[in-house]
């Protein structure tokens, strides 16, 4: 097993209950695997905030990052996670 640090904000933080926490996942797990595990733990409350209705496509205003880089610039949902990686789930906010 490897450990991954999860970082959430806003409504996703409320669902998960913490801003930062660690999860243990099998070695070789991808972002898709990690999200499945998290959906198993937090159920519909999390899935409706992450996925488009009736699909496994992530909502366009949710940014998923590994070590600070958006997964679309890595290997998307198939990005393989390493021990110690930081996985961020950031819904869109506003204001600057």
């Amino acid at each position: 097993m490897i450990k991954v640090k999860i970082y959430t904000i806003m409504e996703l933080k409320k669902v998960c209950g913490q801003r930062e926490f660690e999860l243990s996942i099998p070695e070789g797990s991808t972002v898709r695997d990690l999200l499945s595990l998290m959906i198993n733990q937090w159920g519909d409350q999390l899935s409706v905030r992450l996925y488009k209705p009736g699909s496994d496509s992530v909502l366009p205003h949710i940014r998923l990052m590994v070590n600070g880089r958006s997964i679309e610039f890595l290997k998307g949902m198939e990005t393989v996670l390493q021990d110690g990686d930081e996985f961020s789930m950031l819904p869109l906010v506003a204001g600057g």
């Binding site: 970082y7 904000i9 806003m10 933080k13 909502l59 366009p60 205003h61 600070g68 961020s88 950031l90 869109l92 906010v93 506003a94 204001g95 600057g96």
Partner: peptide, 23 residues
């Protein structure tokens, strides 16, 4: 996805959470 109701009730400080997450 963010103007109503969120931004109208919070204003700009949500970006503290966002930029802290981005480091």
């Amino acid at each position: 996805p963010v103007l109503y109701p969120e931004f109208s009730m919070t204003g700009t400080p949500t970006n503290v959470d966002n930029t802290c997450a981005l480091g």
